[in-house]
Structure formats: structure tokens, C-alpha cells
Amino acid sequence: MLNDQVQKEIRGELEHYPTPRAGCIEALKIVQNHERWVSDTALQEVADLIGIPAAELEGVATFYNLIYRQPVGKHVILLCDSVSCWLTGCGKIRAGIKQRLNIDFGQTTADDRFTLLPMACLGNCDHAPSMMVGEVLHQDLTPESLDQILEGVD
């Protein structure tokens, strides 16, 4: 069952919209904030809470890349792989992560701490390459600064 806190947050969010359906994406994100990802059970519960069919919610959930329908690690690394970051060497950063954490795009470390995902342009192109770890933006990445950043993550 979605816990009270999750339900409360979802209900609060629904108030911004004239129809409950409109809050469904926000609801999935709230679930994710608490549980990292949206399990089948959670999906069904959100659908019930909002009052839309699970299939419809699944259609929505599988459309957006920031809704995770598979388990992710504690920290999701969103590495921008769009053009400005490509020009400035995001490939090297990807390689650096692979070397350090032994994961490539779509993979999670064995200890469940990191998941690496490619990310469309982060809108931080003047400080490319960029990535987000969780909600924190890291910029002007170099293989060296990458090590520091990963070390700094709890």
C-alpha cells in the first residue's frame, strides 16, 4: 500500500489540476522519491488512487524517461550525452564511470548504489560536460573531477 505520506503528497499535488488524471505523472514521481522506482504494485495503486486504468497509467509511465519502471540504484547518474557535452567529451566521462563503477548506460552497480542513464541535454551546455547525480548538478566534468564527485556521494 502507498503509505500515508505518499498519499498525502499525491493528494496535495492533485489540487493543482482540474482533473485527477493530470496529476498522474507527478504521482509517479512522488512514489519514486520514496521508493526509487515504480513497481507493478505501486503502479496499480497509483492508478486506483487517481481513478484511471492501470494500462493507461502504464502507457504514461513508459513514455517518460524519468519514470523508472525497473529498480534503480540509490543514486541515479544522469549523464548528458547530447551534442554540446559530446563535443566537450562526455564520452570520456562515460568511460570514466564505466571504469570506476563498472556500469554502462542502463546498468546498476552490483551494490545497488549507482545506476547510470543517458540524459538528454541538461541545459547546462556552457559548462559541458554535465551530469546529475540524484538531484545535484555537476558540471565542467573531467575524468579527475568525476572521481571526486563519486567519492563525495554517500
Binding site: 486504468p53 513508459t62 513514455f63
Partner: peptide
Amino acid sequence: YRDYAGGKDLDAFGVHDRMYFGRQE
């Protein structure tokens, strides 16, 4: 199925060239 006949358990999933039409399970 959904729009015309009011069915609730068939939908379009996924995105770009990985689209899937079926049930949620």
C-alpha cells in the same frame, strides 16, 4: 478498443520506435 469501445485494459506503451500495444500484463 479504448477510445471507441471504452475498454480499459489495452493501451499503447513505450515511445519512439519501441512501441508496444497490449495489456499492462
